[in-house]
Amino acid sequence: MRKAIAWGCLVPMRRSLLGYEASTRKVLEHLGVQTTDIPNETCCAPFWMQSLDLTTSLAMAARNLAKAEAMGMDLLTPCSGCFHSYKRVNHVMENYPEMRERIDEILRSVRLHYEGTVEPRHLVDFLHKDIGPDKLQQKATRDLSGISIGLRYGCHMLKPHELLNIEYSERPIFADELLEQFGVNSVQYGGRHRCCGGLLRGVQDDIADRILHERLVDVNEQGVDGIVTVCSLCHMQHDMGQRGIKRKFGMDDLELPVLHYPQLLALGFGYKPEELGLDLHTMKTDKIVAKIMGGGKR
């Protein structure tokens, strides 16, 4: 069934995240999933906006949900922040009647209505549950068994699991399972499931740096070919933030490419690196891309 896609603010607008949109589109097209962009999508008002005013944030997010509902589609998003916001709207509307009334009233003033019937889905969960590892394996054309990566699940795709209902966040495996269909070696390591500090960027920059430093030390010790993220903020922290950490903490040998999850899948489906925006990242992806392109076909 056709899905309404919410791309979020950052994915279609930031140089290093354009590849997230491009590769998501390629992967979904390759798997025969039909999509429509949410018309004139606006900010989903994620956690930082909830911090300023929860009511406003929920009403803002409900605007995009109302559009998806009017099209009769469930909502799919590659951004964990967006996913979390939309799940939050449904949860609050179900559990707090007074807040539901308030959101209704605000939306009425802009001639919108959201009944609460849209199921928000995260791209990676959708690929795992609705498409499945088997189908991915059948469609794989490029062998990725030569590369090892450090996968980051991030926070807002999984936590808290009562709200998001994908998998218990302490030891998740579903996203690894999909990469394994292409032969990728997804390495287990300390700090794999810990926060990257992304939401403190611009507010408590020193803390954001120190947390990111811990994450980069953790993954760098594994000698992986790169990091793979499923969240816009994780990518911005690890990719755009890496040079700063290198300087601030004197990590001279730090040079880790950071791939978006569907970029790796699209490479496994045989797409060319230049179609996937891999040259737009802050950290050079040349080495991991060369290693992948030098690997065999299957």
Binding site: M60, V110, L112
Partner: peptide, 28 residues
Amino acid sequence: RMREELGLPPLQDPDIETLQRIMTQAGL
């Protein structure tokens, strides 16, 4: 320009008018 080179569809204009009314109405 980068979107065009990558073959992505043109960026949509967000519905700013609705968004601003929500922000005013809701208290932000």
